[in-house]
Amino acid sequence: MNWTWFHKWGSPKWFFQKTEALVLWFGFLCLILLVVGTVWGLAFAPEDIKQGNSFRIFYIHVPSAILAQSIFMAMAISAVVGLVWRMKLAHIFVQVAAPIGASITLLALVTGAIWGKPTWGTWWVWDARLTSTLIQFFIYLGIISLYQSIENRDTAYKATAIACLVGIVNLPIIKFSVNWWKTLHQPATFKLTEAPSMAAEMWVPGLIMLVGFYLFFAFAVLVRMRSEVLEREKRTAWVREYLEKKNVL
């Protein structure tokens, strides 16, 4: 099998030049999808029979919750790539994805709480999913603070990658234990969504939002990665050329 496509990702210069147009495309597409999804979800989708219009929070809560988990998975995979193949870009990805992941997780938590008020009558319920999302948010914060407090950059990259892997190994255990704790303390009384009986006109905007969220993550992560690559490689000739082209120098 030909692995050159993979090895090319080891070159920061190659990455920087290839993603220049890609970033704009991601940004453009996610803008369209998020605007369409939001307008559709807010103004055109029908209301839920039981929950009324508060159901419209679904269109940001669920995509953000799904994305928050995907980001963690992506970080863990990237951490493996960084540790095994010593690929700098993979380490940079882990480092820049963490704050985005934390913000998306926070969004999922806050919108969940806001949704909870009209649906359950309280802002916060120690529901299994909410609780494990909260703990996932704490893990994100731990990883970010670890990266920020180690001064040597390469050590910080490695330590963050290891912390990510430890997190991903523990995440299923945490989720299971929280679920189990919930069933022990009180029977499950709330179901957030009645997924199977949802009409197409209700879930289609949700799907659009989900794709929009993923593209937004891709966009945000690429913008951040490009900055970090620039910072790392600022002493090289190609960065100089780039600066001249941008009229910065």
């Binding site: 704490f138 731990g142 603070s145 670890l146 430890v166 997190g167 523990n170 945490i174 234990s177």
Partner: peptide
């Protein structure tokens, strides 16, 4: 503490 505490939950 921040790093380890979430992992102590189970």
């Amino acid at each position: 503490a921040l790093l380890v505490m979430p992992l102590y939950v189970p």
